[in-house]
C-alpha cells in the first residue's frame, strides 16, 4: 500500500476524475453571497468607491499597487468615450453585479468568473482603505472559479451526469483553505490573549462587534477562556481532522459552529457566511463520481 506522501507526489493522483459538484456549489453560492453583499452596501457604495467618495481617488492612487488596476483606472479608460467617471463607476458596478449573477446561474461561467474576479479585485484595490479579510478571501476563490472548471451542475445548461474534473482543482482549493485556518490558528496561539480569554472579551466588548451586552463575562472569565481555546482547537485542528472521512463531518460542523458564534456574538455575518460556504462546499459536498459515469 502506498503512503499518503508518495500518493501526493504521484502525478496521476492529481488528475483522478471527481465530480465537479463541490466547485459548482461554490460557483452558485459565492457569487450570490457577493451579490447580496453588494446590495447590502448599495446605499454607501459610491461613498466607499466613487470619484466623490469619502477618500478621493487621488489619495487612494498614492497607496495602491500601481500594477493592479483599481476602479479609477478602469473609469478613466472610459473617459475618451464620453462616459463620465461617475457614470463609469455605476456602469462597472453594474457589470460586476451582472457577472456575479451570470456566474451563479452558470452562463458562460469562465468569462463570468473572469469579469467577477477582475472587477472584485478592482473594487478591493480602489477601496483598500475600507476592505477587510473577507474581501481578500472572496478574491482568492473567485480567481479559482475562473481558473478551474466548475462543470454544468446546477446551471440552466443541460446536465451531463458523466462530467468530471481533475481532483487537483479541488485539492488546491481545499489545501488553501486548510492553510488559511492553520495560519489563523497558529498566529492566534502565539498571543497570550487567546489562552486567557482576553481575546474573546476584547472582541465582544468593542462597539463595532458588540451585539449583546456581555459585560457579565468579566465575572465568569472561564467562559471566554474556553471559547478562546475552542477557537484554537477548531482552527489548528482543521488541517488534521478535516481530511479523514471519520472526523470530516464533525470538524465541518465544529467550524460552522465557530462561524455561527462569530456571526451571532460579533455581528460578522458576511465574513462568517463566506467561511461557512467555503467549508460547506469544499468538504461537505461529495466529490465521488456517480457510478454510471465511473463505469
Amino acid at each position: 500500500m502506498r503512503s499518503g506522501r508518495s500518493r501526493l507526489l504521484a502525478i496521476d493522483t492529481w488528475f483522478r476524475p471527481v465530480s465537479p459538484r463541490p466547485l459548482a456549489g461554490l460557483r452558485v453560492a459565492l457569487p450570490l453571497l457577493l451579490l447580496f453583499h453588494l446590495l447590502w452596501l448599495s446605499n454607501d457604495i459610491l461613498a466607499l468607491h466613487g470619484s466623490r467618495g469619502i477618500i478621493p481617488w487621488e489619495l487612494t492612487d498614492l497607496l495602491r499597487d500601481p500594477w493592479v488596476p483599481g476602479l479609477p483606472t478602469l473609469a478613466k479608460a472610459l473617459l475618451p468615450l464620453g462616459i463620465s467617471a461617475h457614470t463609469a463607476i455605476i456602469l462597472l458596478l453594474s457589470v460586476y453585479a451582472g457577472s456575479l449573477l451570470s456566474l451563479a446561474l452558470g452562463f458562460y461561467t469562465r468569462l463570468s468568473a473572469f469579469l467577477a474576479w477582475g472587477l472584485h479585485l478592482s473594487l478591493m484595490t480602489s477601496g483598500f482603505a475600507s476592505f477587510y479579510g473577507v474581501d481578500q478571501l472572496a478574491n482568492t476563490f473567485l480567481f479559482y472559479l475562473f481558473l478551474f472548471p466548475s462543470g454544468r451542475a446546477w446551471t440552466f445548461a443541460s446536465p451531463r451526469p458523466e462530467e468530471t474534473i481533475p481532483v487537483g482543482c479541488l485539492r488546491v482549493m481545499q489545501i488553501h483553505l486548510c492553510v488559511i485556518y492553520l495560519a489563523a490558528g497558529l498566529f492566534k496561539a502565539m498571543g497570550r490573549q487567546w489562552w486567557n480569554g482576553e481575546a474573546i472579551w476584547q472582541a465582544v466588548s468593542q462597539p463595532a462587534f458588540s451585539t449583546f451586552d456581555l459585560s457579565s463575562l468579566a465575572r465568569h472569565s472561564w467562559i471566554p477562556m474556553i471559547a478562546g481555546w475552542g477557537t484554537l482547537v477548531v482552527e489548528i485542528g482543521y488541517v488534521f481532522l478535516i481530511w479523514p472521512r471519520r472526523t470530516r463531518k464533525v470538524w465541518c460542523f465544529a467550524t460552522i459552529g465557530l462561524h455561527l458564534g462569530m456571526a451571532l456574538f460579533m455581528g460578522l455575518v458576511f465574513f462568517s457566511s463566506v467561511m461557512i460556504l467555503l467549508t460547506g462546499c469544499l468538504f461537505l459536498i461529495p466529490d465521488e463520481v456517480p457510478e454510471r459515469a465511473a463505469a
Partner: peptide, 10 residues
Amino acid sequence: DSYSFFAPAV
C-alpha cells in the same frame, strides 16, 4: 495573504 485575523491579539 497572511490570515492573521484577530491575531496574535485583538
